[in-house]
């Protein structure tokens, strides 16, 4: 992929497309459990993610972003994979909440919970919390927007997952913010 990056001249069109994608991240209305309520409230009147260009879509074929909100069980996991495969490239995945990250409170004693959705689909942003606050979700989305901006045709994209409030990023700061500051 490195070679392709070197040999292809990126143009303003590519940047323009990325800019457009960044500001219209349509997300799949996909909620399994508790985090789904927080996802709904994030789309609700107070947090209002519509202002970020995020509009819920009922079908995976129209969405760019899958927010895995809630526990994924073994029975559900293959359906999540199917949904992810139905989304068109470039597609992005945010794992919201401890259950989707790692099985959360169910990881130890539950026989039926999948311990982390990343066993089935690749995850771009992890958001810890049980459930995460809407602010944390927005924080993760802002970090994701930075990746969407760096996305280039031919599938050149960041591969390492980003963790909200991970040790390299104190809570409330994300790569986008730092970039704004150094501009």
């Amino acid at each position: 992929m490195k070679a392709a990056e070197d040999s292809i001249v990126t143009t303003a069109v590519d940047e323009f497309l990325a800019w457009g994608k960044e500001h219209s991240l349509f997300y799949l209305l996909f909620a399994t459990a508790c985090c789904g309520i927080e996802l709904m409230q994030t789309g609700g009147p107070r947090y209002d993610v519509d202002r970020l260009g995020m509009i819920p879509r009922a079908t995976p074929r129209q969405s760019d972003l899958m927010i895995v909100a809630g526990t994924i069980t073994h029975k559900m996991a293959s359906r999540v994979r199917t949904l992810w495969e139905q989304m068109t490239e470039p597609r992005w995945v945010v794992s919201m909440g401890s259950c989707a990250n790692s099985g959360g409170p169910f990881s130890k004693w539950s026989y039926s919970v999948l311990n982390g959705v990343d066993k089935y689909i690749p995850v771009d942003v992890y958001i810890p919390g049980c459930p995460p606050r809407p602010e944390a979700l927005i924080d993760g989305v802002m970090a994701l927007r930075e990746r969407v901006r760096r996305y280039r045709t031919l599938g050149i994209r960041d591969r390492d997952p980003y963790v909200v409030a991970g040790h390299e990023a104190p809570f409330g700061s994300h790569p986008g913010k730092e970039r704004e500051a150094t501009r």
């Binding site: 073994h74 996991a77 293959s78 994979r81 790692s102 099985g103 990881s107 026989y111 999948l114 311990n115 982390g116 990343d118 066993k119 089935y120 689909i121 690749p122 995850v123």
Partner: peptide, 19 residues
């Protein structure tokens, strides 16, 4: 494991398909 996906968390990650 269920359908080849191990139940334990440790040492698992996504790799282009069910791990």
């Amino acid at each position: 494991a269920y359908h080849g996906v191990p139940h334990a968390r440790a040492g698992q990650w996504f790799e282009d398909g069910p791990a």
